[in-house]
Computed example of a mutant assay.
Amino acid sequence: MRIFIATDAWKPQVNGVVRTYENLKRELEAAGHMVTILSPLDFATLPCPGYREIRLALARRSQVAALLKEGNYDHVHIATEGPIGLATRGVCLRKGIRFTTSFHTRFPEYIEAYTGLPAWISYAFQRWFHRPGIGMFVATRSLKTELSGRGFRRLMLWSRGVDTAQFKPRAKMGDAEDAAAKAGPTFLYVGRVSREKNVEAFLNLDLPGRKVVVGDGPILGLLRSRYPDVVFKGAKTGEDLAQEYSNADVFVFPSRTDTFGLVLLEAMASGLGVAAYPVTGPIDVVTPGVTGCLDEDLRAAALAALKLDRDQVRVQAMRHDWSRVANLFLANIYQARRAAGLGKRLVKAHAAKHLHIKPRATARPIS
């Protein structure tokens, strides 16, 4: 298949959405498909107000239309509701091109936290954005239930994966700072250092040992000055990030607003037990008492997670493979297009040939 994916989140951003589509592209292309990513790299950009690390594209519909016409794509998927997503949506509607979408981020809650704009207004915009699509991909069952209650339709489950070859248990290694500070357990947070991630809920915990934060974001400087006893290591990727997971004893995930949390899988694949609130994301990914501990008392969860069997944590994470994620992505496309009466034979043939999707696996009704 020739697949066109429009996303406002792409490199050099470091977040779960970017990693999801990087891995999806790799897996689909390895299976023989052609994937084109339309991203901010294709346009002039401006820094996002209050979040300069994110660039907003000055997306032109004429440019998007030309790309779609030139590529003669079998399917269009819109990943985000930003300027690129809006431009692609507009072109598709004008040209009669059917498309699927994804719900990755709780922008309504984030916008309310930063600006005070009531979340219901942003949810009304998101319903408008996703309504014309023939399928809307969501990461977890609890998120699907929640969004269904908010009036979203044609919801389809599309989970996430982890590179278990990169994220795996390793011998603990570190710099001089690590060696000097390692008295007691290490509690780790990995992710954006921003208000919506609720990082201070972790930093305020009374825990033995030390706390380590890996990541960058708009409030990193503020938190560094406010919490001098916490080790802030900045953003890390690849082998350096994988080593940080292995150096820790517990992974603490304080966010209450994530739709999934790829870092949960990375931690678990590294044999690291998770401590989190019992909210969407953790309740769908973490097996309580096996791969992590969920509690409204985050300190109690963190201390309980110290006692988990790291080998068993790793075993559970091995179930989340990126090839399965790519498989499900194609299966959802086939299902959505079949329900809309579009291209059944083409999509089914390609899916069965390249990713070995059995027809019965795609027969789930859209709800």
Rank of each mutant, 00 (worst) to 15 (best):
H104V: 13
H104C: 12
L303A: 08
A176K: 14
E266M: 03
H33P: 02
A179T: 11
T20R: 13
V250G: 00
T88L: 15
L86F: 15
G133S: 11
E196R: 12
I78W: 09
N332M: 01
S367N: 10
D175M: 02
T257F: 14
F107H: 10
E196I: 11
L157I: 03
P254I: 10
T237P: 05
A340T: 04
K197C: 02
L222R: 09
R338M: 08
K168H: 15
T45D: 06
N204Q: 08
D8T: 03
A242H: 00
P278H: 01
T145M: 14
M173A: 12
G96Y: 07
V162Y: 09
Y245C: 00
G292Y: 06
E296H: 02
Y334A: 06
R324I: 13
A301F: 01
A317Q: 01
A340G: 01
N15K: 01
R106L: 10
A305M: 08
V279G: 01
Q243F: 00
V279K: 03
A181M: 13
T237M: 09
R210E: 11
P169G: 11
I121S: 09
Y110H: 11
E27L: 05
K168N: 14
S159Y: 10
E266C: 00
E239F: 05
P47I: 01
A139Q: 14
E29Y: 00
T45G: 10
R94A: 12
Q243T: 04
A235M: 11
S246D: 05
G85T: 07
A326L: 02
L328Y: 14
F4D: 06
L28N: 01
D321Q: 15
Q243G: 00
K25N: 05
E22Q: 08
R360C: 05
A57L: 06
L303S: 15
I37E: 10
F187I: 00
S159A: 08
K307T: 04
L68C: 13
A352I: 14
I3Q: 02
V76W: 04
R52C: 07
I366H: 05
G261L: 01
M136P: 06
F137K: 15
E196T: 05
L223W: 03
L303Q: 13
G90W: 13
V285P: 03
S323P: 10
A124N: 08
P47Y: 05
E112S: 01
N327L: 10
M156G: 06
T280W: 04
G217L: 00
V290H: 13
L303N: 11
K95M: 07
K307F: 04
D206H: 07
R106T: 10
A317Y: 10
A179W: 15
I283S: 05
A176C: 10
T100W: 13
L203R: 06
P278M: 03
D229S: 11
A302W: 05
S102E: 15
S367L: 14
R60A: 08
V347H: 13
V212S: 08
R127E: 05
W120E: 14
L143W: 03
G96I: 12
S367Q: 15
D178Q: 07
F187K: 00
G85I: 06
E81F: 08
D175W: 04
R338Y: 13
